[in-house]
């Protein structure tokens, strides 16, 4: 270790005399800086992409070949039904990392550094959410690619598939606010993970992702068909991929996303401001 030079003309003295104070950056620029940070973290900790890449592969293969025959007669028929739903599940399952990441930042003290900066307050959270959408896109690409190999044929064509993924990203962004709240609320990153999974399980499994809710007992059917917002999303995504989407299917998803964001984002920001 060298001794720091603190003499009159030392680099240290020079460096602490900042010649120019830049103008405060715009909200957008700050948000994108935080997105950049999220991407840098993916670069340095590529392990965090494991879930985004392996989970969709394992789930798709497992459901198509394990249950495909039993549920739909043969895997080929089932993959055509399942793929849009398993795409939704794959992406929603990795939204939990949003809360996990925020909680880790809090426990490591990085978060307080950001809060002490003169920046647009939602930037750290919105930037992180935008960074997460990169992960969602990777997971979507892998799931759809695998589906195509397994015989999935989207009638809606490339446009339908792209629109379906976009709809999914919008919903994932809206749903992520639940996990930012958990991230701010819980004590440890692992607790955030646990509770998030508890929330996601009924949302994804008790839905129309794997089977038609018509086969379910009435209480469960009501939840899976009429209440669970994920089912609306799956219906929308299926519609776009099959080329049969109605305006209502899509509008419902957008309305639910808007409501989730409109209610949860302000709660998140309030908790963020008052975080002790």
């Amino acid at each position: 270790m060298t001794t720091l030079d603190i003499g009159d003309n030392s680099a240290l003295r020079q460096a602490i005399r900042v010649e120019r104070r830049p103008k405060r950056p715009s909200a957008l620029a700050t948000t994108l800086t935080f997105t950049h940070r999220a991407l840098l973290k993916i670069k340095h900790v590529p392990e965090q992409l494991m879930d985004a890449t392996l989970t969709p592969v394992i789930f798709t293969l497992m459901f198509v070949y394990l249950f495909g025959g039993a549920i739909a007669g043969d895997p080929q028929t089932y993959v055509q039904f399942l793929l849009p739903g398993i795409l939704v599940q794959s992406v929603l399952l990795i939204t939990v990392y949003t809360g996990f990441t925020i909680n880790t930042d809090i426990s490591k003290g990085v978060f307080d550094r950001f809060r002490s900066l003169p920046i647009w307050r939602p930037a750290p959270i919105v930037g992180a959410l935008l960074g997460d959408s990169v992960r969602y896109t990777i997971a979507s690409t892998i799931t759809i690619g695998l589906g195509l190999i397994l015989g999935f044929r989207p009638e809606g064509g490339l446009v339908g598939v792209v629109l379906a993924v976009m709809l999914l990203l919008i919903f994932a962004f809206a749903l992520s606010w639940i996990f930012t709240i958990l991230g701010l609320l819980m004590r440890t990153p692992n607790a955030v993970m646990g509770v998030s999974m508890l929330i996601l399980m009924p949302l994804t499994f008790a839905s129309n992702i794997f089977v038609d809710p018509a086969t379910m007992p009435s209480g469960l059917q009501t939840w899976a068909q009429d209440i669970n917002p994920v089912s609306y999303l799956v219906t929308g995504v299926r519609g776009l991929m099959y080329g049969t989407a109605s305006f209502g299917d899509i509008a419902w998803v957008l309305v639910v996303s808007a409501i989730l964001t409109g209610v949860l984002a302000p709660i998140t920001m309030r908790m963020y401001r008052n975080k002790t």
Partner: peptide, 26 residues
């Protein structure tokens, strides 16, 4: 601010940390 509660990101490099902060200041 420096201390136990305002820290840098351990996963990123020193240069990345300071560069990101400089970006946030404009």
């Amino acid at each position: 601010l420096t201390g136990q509660f305002a820290s840098v990101d351990e996963d990123l490099t020193g240069a990345e940390n300071v560069t990101l902060l400089a970006r946030m200041y404009g």
